[in-house]
Design a binder for these strands. Structure first.
Lengths: 231, 231
DNA sequence: GGCTCCGGATAACTTATGTTGTGGCATCGG
DNA sequence: CCGATGCCACAACATAAGTTATCCGGAGCC
């Protein structure tokens, strides 16, 4: 987190403000659901380490992960319960450490610091761009392309906060969870991973993913990082 | 538009403000692209009649529609060009009439009227919920379920602004365009539509869609309108 | 009238992906 | 040590969806 440099506007001043605002540390363990205390007010989370995900539970029992939160990501949890039905949940993917802050305090600080305002705006734009890209991924790409694209996106996002050095990073997802992201069965995820592995593009061992040939991986994924750098 | 009642907070006052702010009328014809004038500043569009869409053009030439804008919808068009690459475009689906406003003026008005602030927040929440649902649609549903779900969503959204009476509404999409939304080939869209038609659920004739049995259609689509009513 | 063009229906065939089941190999707790 | 359990690999098979092609009807155009 210390090395975080999300966007041009995220400067020293922003970092100091954020570090002052986010004080309570919480740890969630694998598969633990983030509780939404104070539904009306909501709460802001900032990921320190580990991954979390937002997932929709569909009527027929299937699950779709719609967003993943990596170290440095900021996201709100507000009333996600509408009409008595749990629309979606936030869940830890592996051990996940976060800090929290009230949306009110963050908004107040943002009113006083232009750079923070712009950073928050940038974050929301980027998140929307990712959502749109995932729609395209799930709609247009083959499963092995989706797997490759997911890895490329995660690596790129990690690099924004100073992680992923040597194209190597902690990768806590099971194949079932990858499937829940890209809309595929775990069996097919396994098949596709083998294909990518056999092509010498990457390896996953002991929860650590190592990209061997980023250029070819990005090509296979039709990956273009533009959408991760809005404006 | 006169009957628009998006959310609880969208009251008489809001409507008056919006009608004062949005003054320039523009008409776009089928397949015409919305130009983004003043990339830095951006511009807000409010749809009066017709449909528009935001689409991503992927590296290999495929196209994915990521959002559709119906009468009453409000959306920004800002710099959608990043690093010299056109990331996405806004295009009219059939004849589309809109009005415009500068984001600055809207923000200013929103600072002065709480109900408007909340309405704008509600809209952005709803749009994000739709994006997430489309990820789930494309990831988890069969093609005929996706077609059914799309129709259910559009009908529900139209009803929010006083349209779609008698479960009947203008439907300007070609099968190709439906395919670009749900991630399927036009041939398969045709097949699925036939299936839905043969089941007596709906009919499309002369650009008008008539739902015959909404309850069964929603069931076939696993449709739950909760996500369209955030908070 | 007779063009062309576009959107739609449908058929035959191919392929990507899902389904079901089996077995291996860790890890964990008694 | 044993037996559970969870994750992964793989195989055989079933099916949803893509591909390619043809035909048809309506809209526009000369």
């Amino acid at each position: 987190m210390a090395k975080a440099r999300l966007c041009e506007d995220f400067n020293e001043e922003c970092r100091d403000i954020v570090e002052q605002l986010f004080v309570n540390f919480i740890s969630y363990s694998k598969k633990q659901t983030f509780f939404h205390e104070g539904d009306d007010i909501g709460i802001m989370f900032l990921v320190c380490s580990g991954w979390a995900a937002r997932a929709i539970h569909l009527a027929d029992g299937r699950r779709q992960i719609t967003e993943i939160f990596l170290p440095g990501d900021l996201f709100p949890v507000h009333a996600s319960i509408s009409q008595g039905v749990i629309e979606d949940e936030i869940v830890a993917l592996g051990e996940c450490r976060v800090t929290t802050c009230s949306p009110g305090a963050l908004n107040e600080a943002s009113r006083q610091t232009n750079a923070l305002t712009r950073t928050l705006w940038w974050l929301s734009q980027r998140d929307a761009a990712i959502l749109r890209m995932w729609i395209a991924m799930n709609g247009q790409y083959r499963v092995y392309e989706r797997v490759a694209h997911l890895v490329c996106e995660v690596l790129e996002r990690l690099k924004h906060v100073g992680l992923g050095e040597g194209n190597r990073f902690d990768f806590p997802l099971t194949q079932q969870e990858i499937g829940d992201i890209i809309g595929a069965t775990p069996v097919h995820v396994s098949r596709s991973l083998k294909q990518i592995r056999d092509a010498g593009l990457l390896d996953i061992q002991g929860g650590v993913l190592q990209v061997h040939d980023l250029e070819r991986l990005q090509k296979a994924a039709h990956f273009n990082p533009g959408y991760l750098n809005p404006r």
